[in-house]
Computed example of a mutant assay.
Amino acid sequence: MMMHHGIGLERFNSLTRSRAVHALFECCCNVTWAAKIADGRPYPSHEALFKAGEAELDALSAVDLERVFDSCVHEPVSAHTLGELTRITQTRLETMLGPEDGYPEY
Rank of each mutant, 00 (worst) to 15 (best):
I37C: 04
A35R: 02
M3N: 15
N13I: 03
A62Y: 05
E75T: 10
A23T: 12
P104H: 05
S61W: 11
F50I: 07
V77G: 08
S18L: 08
H5Q: 15
F25P: 02
A48L: 13
S14M: 12
R41Y: 02
K36Q: 11
F50R: 08
R92K: 15
V77S: 04
L24D: 00
H46R: 14
E100I: 09
V31T: 15
Y103K: 11
R41W: 00
F50A: 09
V68L: 01
P99H: 10
D64Y: 02
H5E: 14
D39P: 01
L85T: 05
E66W: 08
S45Y: 03
I37N: 00
L93K: 01
H80V: 09
V63M: 13
L85F: 02
C27K: 05
K51S: 14
D64Q: 13
L82E: 03
H5W: 14
A35H: 03
P44K: 14
G83Q: 10
F12D: 00
P104M: 04
I88E: 04
H22G: 10
K51H: 11
F50W: 07
R17A: 12
H4N: 14
T86M: 05
V73Y: 09
R11N: 13
V73N: 12
R67E: 08
V21Y: 00
Y106N: 06
E10D: 12
C28N: 06
G98N: 04
S78G: 13
S18N: 11
P76R: 12
L49G: 05
E47P: 06
E84H: 10
A48P: 08
D64R: 12
P76I: 04
M3G: 12
K51A: 15
A34F: 04
L49E: 03
